[in-house]
Amino acid sequence: MFIYINQHAIACGSDDTLAKVIRAYCDDHQLHFDEVAVAHNDSLMPRSQWAHQRVVAEQRFSLFSAVAGG
């Protein structure tokens, strides 16, 4: 099945947790797992829930990181 992170299709298993998917995405993109945040349906998906949250086909997540800004 596929889910979407920032509009990019990600293949994953039905038992995969959001934490596992985000960690794999971070590894693939040279991001630090501890330095990202996730939104789902324009709401925060708290980090504390990632390990318990199983992903569902076609779910769409937005992933954010910190950048320079004034």
Partner: peptide, 18 residues
């Protein structure tokens, strides 16, 4: 010190600010 948040792009230079 301020910093911003950004939606991660598929191709994005790694930002070392943090």
């Amino acid at each position: 010190v301020t910093l911003a948040l950004k939606r991660i792009e598929q191709v994005q230079d790694k930002d070392m600010t943090l």
